[in-house]
């Protein structure tokens, strides 16, 4: 995992990933404390006690995040050695790209073309991404959204958007 050179003098952190995670969160926390809190949390007028301020809890949570991130970095540098379980990555690119497409379909098309069509579309994309080769399964992708949407609308009275019905 570590990229540091193999000199005898070089220092190897016990758990590099914790150091990286800690560093990212530390930077994030500092950004939150010094930019987000003052710019995106309005201070209320007439705050008598600092603990009453809308900025108090987010500020505290931000500082705590920063402190714990620092601890995480220290632990990663000097703590116990962690055995790495090699991550199980490496699915084909098309597979996860189709998954992202399916998620995008749900988000961008839902209101526009309705629940049934997005449901069918996204499910088919995900089936194809796996890929599933049995034909019969694709019928599920068709039947389920239609059945579920009608169940939601007719039985549960939950109005899901549909393209052709207002």
């Amino acid at each position: 995992m570590t990229t540091s050179s193999e000199d005898a003098t070089s220092f190897r952190p016990a758990n590099t990933s914790n150091v990286i995670v800690g560093a990212v969160f530390l930077v994030g926390a500092l950004f939150f404390i010094f930019y987000m809190v003052p710019h995106h949390i309005q201070e209320a007028p007439l705050v008598k006690n600092p603990m009453m301020s809308p900025r108090w809890l987010p500020g505290i949570a931000g500082w705590l995040t920063a402190i714990f991130s620092l601890l995480l970095i220290l632990e990663g540098l000097f703590g116990q050695k962690a055995e790495h379980d090699k991550s199980q990555d490496g699915g084909p690119a098309l597979r996860w790209m189709l998954m992202i497409v399916a998620l995008a379909v749900y988000f961008f098309l839902f209101e526009w073309v309705g629940a049934i069509i997005t449901g069918v579309l996204a499910t088919v994309i995900l089936f194809a991404a796996h890929p599933i080769r049995q034909w019969l399964v694709y019928i599920l992708a068709l039947v389920f959204p239609v059945a579920v949407v009608f169940f939601f609308i007719q039985v549960l009275d939950v109005p899901l958007p549909l393209l052709f019905l207002s």
Partner: peptide
């Protein structure tokens, strides 16, 4: 299972 679970989750 998962594509169908996802559909339910979205609805």
């Amino acid at each position: 299972l998962l594509p169908i679970v996802l559909m339910f989750c979205v609805y």
